[in-house]
């Protein structure tokens, strides 16, 4: 089995050929990027507004749960059957549009719910202080709530990306490209090395993207929020140990 796999991936054409891994990766990334891009543009502003005003939280929760309950394959097939006859001329759009809709619906819940939750979770005292010092509503949102909500927003985006990358494989099921192609084609031609290559490629892609976003997160989120303090005496948790802090307090008083 390992040998079969090795001999499959040691063929250069399986990598660089017109239907090789790289071409499939390119397609996979394209489908995923379009969907995640649309989700970000829709879900983050909406989430920020709902979180800030507190209005519509119940509606957002309901929408998020409802979208989660939709079976991706079923919806995809439904949309293909519904939409593709309208685009008889252009072969890619008739499948790309349904795929994009499904992936967007799939990724909106976690981004939206986490954005709302992130803003709602901001320390009410910090919000109160911000208002009390004369910040306008949008200043409170962008100077206090958004920076503090970033860790949760990022984790929502990360799980959305993970899910989109994994689910974009089903695009192959409706005769689009992407890494799922390797799995579906491998299945029908009984080439298991091809199936496994496709699966591993998807997993690796998901991990690489997750690490990339984690890096972005590291440089965008304030260390005060993430709890990564450079100074001694500070631990990985957000709150320093109580006794430490009190000792430090006593030191300062003595100065």
């Amino acid at each position: 089995m390992i040998n079969d796999l090795w001999s499959y991936i040691s063929v250069a054409d399986h990598w660089w050929g017109p239907n090789g891994i790289m071409a499939r990766l390119d397609e996979h990334l394209r489908y995923s990027a379009i969907a995640v891009g649309i989700s970000l543009v829709l879900a983050i502003p909406l989430g920020l507004v709902v979180g800030h005003t507190g209005r519509g939280t119940a509606v957002v929760t309901f929408i998020a749960n409802a979208f989660r309950a939709l079976p991706a394959v079923g919806l995809l097939i439904f949309l293909v059957v519904l939409i593709s006859p309208q685009f008889t001329g252009r072969s890619e759009a008739r499948y790309l549009i349904p795929t994009t809709i499904v992936l967007v619906l799939l990724s909106i819940p976690s981004i939206l719910a986490n954005t709302v939750e992130g803003v709602r979770n901001v320390d009410p005292e910090a919000r109160d202080a911000a208002r009390g010092m004369g910040m306008t509503g949008s200043q409170v949102l962008f100077k206090v709530e958004l920076p503090c909500a970033l860790p949760l927003i990022f984790s929502g985006v990360r799980s959305a990306v993970l899910q989109v990358i994994a689910t974009a494989t089903i695009a192959a099921y409706i005769s689009l490209g992407g890494l799922g192609r390797l799995i579906i084609d491998g299945l029908s031609s009984r080439e298991y090395p091809k199936v496994i290559t496709g699966a591993v490629a998807v997993a690796v892609l998901a991990i690489v993207l997750d690490v990339l976003i984690a890096l972005i997160q590291r440089y965008t989120v304030s260390r005060g929020v993430s709890g990564r303090f450079s100074r001694k005496g500070a631990t990985a948790t957000t709150a320093p140990r109580k006794d430490d802090a009190i000792e430090a307090d006593a030191e300062v008083l003595a100065v």
Partner: peptide
């Protein structure tokens, strides 16, 4: 229920797909 999707897909038949979707969502809820 996924069987209904494949079936509807091959025949461009909406009804089984809709039945599958509705039952699947209802089951999830």
């Amino acid at each position: 229920l996924g069987t209904l999707f494949s079936y509807g897909k091959d025949l461009f038949y909406y009804a089984p797909i809709v039945v599958g979707l509705v039952l699947s969502v209802a089951l999830a809820f």
